[in-house]
């Protein structure tokens, strides 16, 4: 009996050896291709564009990327258990509107931040409750909730931009610097570290991954997928709300009719991140890598002189190619 096991075991190994070489190469590209791409792009830019490797440019690049980064990290949380949130752009707007309006009414900085946080938590709960307990695909649910929130922003402001009474302490969150580092960047780093700890170092995170991997099995192991997904929706919306604060703090106004253009980019970032994990699941380090790539790409394209509006096309093409290549490789491996 034991003999039989060893033979089947060996046979498995022997079959593996022939294709092992190519498998290693494939795996390498699959996992580290994105990182290599980042390095290559950075190097090319560094050598061809003198203005790229300056402290000033790097600082502004990171500051520009911070908002996108926070949104993308939030999005990573809903993506881990296999959900989707496209209402984030609307939440960014709404939280900015509420936060600024608190200051317009002279309730102070904390009221402003509390209002933003409340927006995040409430919208996240609604998204989660509707899509999980209402059995509606989270894409449809959040798409619709997003439209509703847009309406709320417009209704609340009457369509006018808000800028009165914004406190300097609030603006500091957007344009301030702390030991020579832009505050948004510090916030991004903090968010990234917290997100990493939560997703990869806690029981909550482990269970989220388990749900994303196999919901049925997770249930049979006593995990409550609905509760965990709900929490991930709330985390996501809260991140968007934080982004809303930073956006308004940077520009100094809250504009209810400006649709937040980063949502598509945030998706692209998370997708790019998934390509760096062996099984194609979203994860925080991958997302951070994606943020860097997007940041370098946008910045580089601007420096090189790619028209602003053409940049999106390039990003779209890059995302599509990455997604296609990585999923083909993954399919082949199975």
């Amino acid at each position: 009996m034991t003999k039989q096991i060893t033979t089947s075991f060996q046979r498995g190994d022997a079959a593996g050896v022939s294709s092992k070489q190519s498998l290693i190469i494939k795996n390498f590209f699959l996992r580290y291709g994105t990182i290599v791409a980042l390095l290559v792009v950075t190097l090319i830019l560094a050598f061809t564009t003198p203005s790229f490797m300056t402290a000033l440019n790097i600082k502004s690049m990171l500051a520009q990327t911070a908002v996108l980064g926070i949104v993308a990290i939030g999005l990573t949380f809903v993506s881990i258990p296999g959900e989707m949130d496209v209402s984030m752009g609307s939440v960014v707007t709404l939280s900015g509107v509420f936060a600024v309006s608190m200051m317009t009414k002279e309730y102070g900085l904390f009221a402003a931040l509390a209002a933003a946080a409340a927006v995040g938590i409430v919208v996240g709960s609604i998204n989660g409750l509707i899509s999980i307990y209402g059995h509606i695909s989270s894409l449809i649910a959040t798409l619709t909730i997003g439209a509703i929130i847009d309406g709320v922003s417009l209704l609340y402001t009457g369509g006018y931009r808000l800028y009165k009474g914004i406190l300097p302490s609030y603006r500091y969150l957007g344009i301030g610097e702390f030991v020579n580092i832009p505050v948004p960047v510090i916030i991004l780093i903090l968010v990234a570290v917290l997100a990493y700890l939560l997703a990869h170092q806690t029981v909550f995170g482990r269970r989220l991954f388990a749900i994303g991997g196999n919901t049925d099995a997770a249930i049979l192991m006593g995990i409550n997928p609905k509760l965990h997904s709900l929490l991930s929706f709330i985390l996501c919306s809260t991140a968007a709300a934080l982004a809303g604060v930073i956006v308004t703090a940077r520009v100094g106004t809250a504009e209810p009719f400006v649709r937040f253009g980063y949502v598509l980019d945030a998706f692209a970032v998370v997708f790019l991140g998934t390509t760096t994990s062996e099984e194609g699941e979203p994860h925080i380090p991958g997302t951070v890598l994606g943020i860097l790539i997007m940041g370098v790409l946008s910045n580089g394209m601007t420096l090189v002189g790619v028209p602003f509006f053409a940049q999106n096309i390039l990003k779209g093409v890059i995302v599509l190619i990455t997604v296609v290549v990585s999923s083909i490789m993954r399919q082949q491996r199975k």
Partner: peptide, 14 residues
């Protein structure tokens, strides 16, 4: 220990 090992018993990517 469920009947459908892959579908209900394991998180395959862990």
């Amino acid at each position: 220990i469920p009947e459908d090992r892959r579908g209900e018993g394991l998180i395959m990517h862990m």
